[in-house]
């Protein structure tokens, strides 16, 4: 599996994500936001967490208009895989690759803690290593993780089984307790929690490992 991790000014989970991909057996290349092209034959693009462009204007808004994001959009339009975590989810929402937006947390506070996530569907390359209904423990660290979409969009996500993770105890006011969603073709995942921070025994939890291993299983050459 060939993975690319995009690095924006202010990204701070890019190396963590690369390490998690590598631990699952992927070849990883880092890609600078001013690059115009993704590496050839890349299987999955990681959009990491952090504070791209200082969260100025809106979280992820300036990053979403970086040169590399044109290639990212072309990659996902072709049916390529991508995962956006935390700020990466905000970037994917700002590009329009995923629906909805991430608002300021309802309690207005930045929240950094491990939360319970319910796996709502195992029908994706990201979650086939879990069982629907599993509750896993994954850290969150965000100020703007309050998922919002209009009623029709939420209903569509529900009807198409695209809500992939929900919070067991909603920390941020997200509609329908949404922590992560899939694109229509189920190949793009955006999630606020950080599976790459629960992928090594030294992290204090390894519930995120199954996500990266499942991806490797789905995307490694047969």
């Amino acid at each position: 599996m060939k993975a690319a991790v995009i690095v924006f000014p202010g990204s701070n989970c890019d190396r963590d994500l690369a390490v998690a991909f590598e631990a699952a057996g992927a070849d990883v290349q880092m890609v600078w936001h001013k690059d115009t092209d993704l590496p050839r034959d890349v299987d999955i693009v990681g959009v990491p967490g952090g504070f791209s462009f200082g969260d100025y204007l809106r979280c992820g808004a300036i990053a979403a208009n970086s040169p590399i994001c044109n290639s990212l959009k072309a990659h996902t339009d072709r049916g390529g895989y991508a995962i956006g975590i935390c700020n990466g989810f905000q970037v994917l929402a700002e590009t329009g690759i995923l629906p909805g937006a991430l608002l300021r947390n309802a309690g207005l506070k930045y929240i950094c803690k491990t939360v319970g996530l319910k796996v709502e569907t195992s029908d994706s390359a990201f979650t086939q290593g879990y069982n629907a209904g599993d509750v896993i423990n994954i850290p969150i660290a965000h100020h703007d993780g309050n998922y919002y979409a209009d009623d029709a969009t939420i209903a569509g996500l529900q009807d198409q089984d695209r809500i992939v993770f929900t919070y067991t105890d909603n920390p941020n006011g997200a509609r329908a307790d949404i922590a992560g969603i899939l694109s229509e073709n189920r190949r793009v995942l955006g999630m606020m929690p950080h599976p790459e921070r629960a992928a090594d025994a030294g992290h204090g939890g390894t519930d995120g490992t199954a996500l990266f291993r499942a991806l490797m299983g789905a995307l490694a050459p047969a």
Partner: peptide
């Protein structure tokens, strides 16, 4: 439309 506002919200 392109940058200053996110018309989703």
């Amino acid at each position: 439309e392109k940058l200053l506002a996110n018309t989703v919200i």
